[in-house]
Design a protein around this nucleic acid. Structure first.
Lengths: 242, 242
DNA sequence: TCAAAAGTGTTTAAAGTACACCCATGA
DNA sequence: TCATGGGTGTACTTTAAACACTTTTGA
């Protein structure tokens, strides 16, 4: 077993792929968007990168991902899960291990958090939101990372209720279906979709209705007895005693 | 964004949960076993730990996992996948990020590799194999890690052909079923199991038969057109250009 | 009253489960 | 010849998919 290597020159960074839904107009279906940060120094100066930063010695990985995301964008996601640890030798000129997280956020929470962030005096002029289908030139291996995050999301939506991470506490079945359709990139039958989610026991009907145009739709909320996503024997917070 | 932290005092380690099947006798069904290393120094002196070591600055993560596993046990797995990056502050007295991999190996390959390892002059006296159902006192958070690896294996066996990682190139359907039963911890109907794997298109029948007792069983081999496990948009080797 | 989305019912296909039964071999 | 696992057939249950149909609202 190698006890000493050049491990002193290896640095640990964290990044986050933070996804939310944005609806351009009332008519069309929503798209998945994420915030990127324009790099202000080499390497990859001018390219766009995932929000992140260096891991601090006094904090856990998930903690660091939350902190750096909040520092650069002002966002605090409702769902955060580790994606992968990237550590290819040539992924950066300085040897860097990036532990990447992926996060989901309801669009109304994004608006509120960004407003609060600006009100607190921050002007994130190097942060911009992009549709995942139309990404700018990306720094490092971040394009690969984003595609992997989207793959995980598409995968996980099939066997857990992660899609709810995109929605506010109360929502209609059409809004939930819109989220699924944006994730899976295909249309779902409204009738069958209704029956499936009703049978899954993850939803609780409320007495309230969304009264836009046409027939009012019942509002539902999460059944908090059901986990947002199955993470197996790992606790939601990894900072628990071994 | 925090540009400088105490990142110099953070070290990166790699470990591997290496699983194989061991059949105690011809009669009973096989069990999942893994190699552990007895710690010869503090912390956790005398406890058992996953094989691993420090990440070298010149190697990728997967590369380091293979190297340290080979150095401590002489094993070279047929399947290797990243499990998780563990980084809780209190998981070790010195701040350590452990990038853990999980690996599968056919039992006949284990025997061959260990024989070759001993023939090359190595005497791994601190390495011992344990059934996953009967683990000794483990160092750090390694018990949690092993249970997570087993959960991933059980999960993945449902939608990919990872179970083949336990088997030699040619095998009978009963041997494949034994692997599934050991992983899932429940009996499977032989008739339905046969039809399911035949329909999946992952197996190619050979002209050879296993002629033990009773009626000879046809030998099958992998259809190499099908991936061993779905890893999404990530290449099998993470060391590819961004 | 009409367009459009909410919500219900029904039919068909596919996939999974249970289990009876025949086949081929070594002892 | 018989016990045993290899291998096939079939009926039944559950799940998913397709789509016709009714209900309720705003304009």
């Amino acid at each position: 077993m190698t006890k000493t290597g050049n491990e002193d020159s290896i640095r640990v960074a964290v990044s986050a792929v933070t996804l939310t839904l944005r609806r351009e107009s009332e008519e069309e279906s929503p798209h998945i968007v994420l915030p990127l940060v324009r790099r202000t120094r080499e390497p990859h100066l001018g390219d766009w990168a995932l929000p992140g930063g260096w891991l601090d010695a006094q904090e856990g990985l998930e903690e660091a991902a939350s902190r750096t995301l909040a520092e650069t964008t002002g966002l605090a996601p409702s769902y955060l899960e580790q994606l992968y640890a990237f550590g290819a030798v040539d992924r950066s000129p300085t040897r860097t291990i990036s532990v990447v997280y992926w996060a989901l956020l309801p669009s109304d929470a994004v608006d509120r958090q960004i407003a609060a962030y600006r009100a607190a005096g921050h002007a994130p002029e190097n942060v911009q939101w992009f549709e995942v289908a139309d990404l700018p030139p990306l720094a490092f291996d971040h394009a690969q990372i984003i595609h992997y995050a989207l793959w995980r999301l598409r995968n996980k939506v099939g066997y857990s209720r992660v899609a709810h991470g995109f929605l506010p506490p109360e929502f209609t079945l059409a809004e939930l279906r819109d989220a699924y359709e944006a994730i899976l990139q295909r249309r779902l039958d409204p009738a069958n979709f209704r029956r499936q989610v009703e049978a899954s026991g993850t939803l609780i009907p409320t007495d309230r209705f969304r009264t836009g145009s046409h027939r009012p739709a019942r509002l539902y909320r999460y059944n908090t007895d059901v986990e947002l996503a199955d993470r197996g024997p790992l606790a939601p917070e990894e900072t628990r005693t071994p």
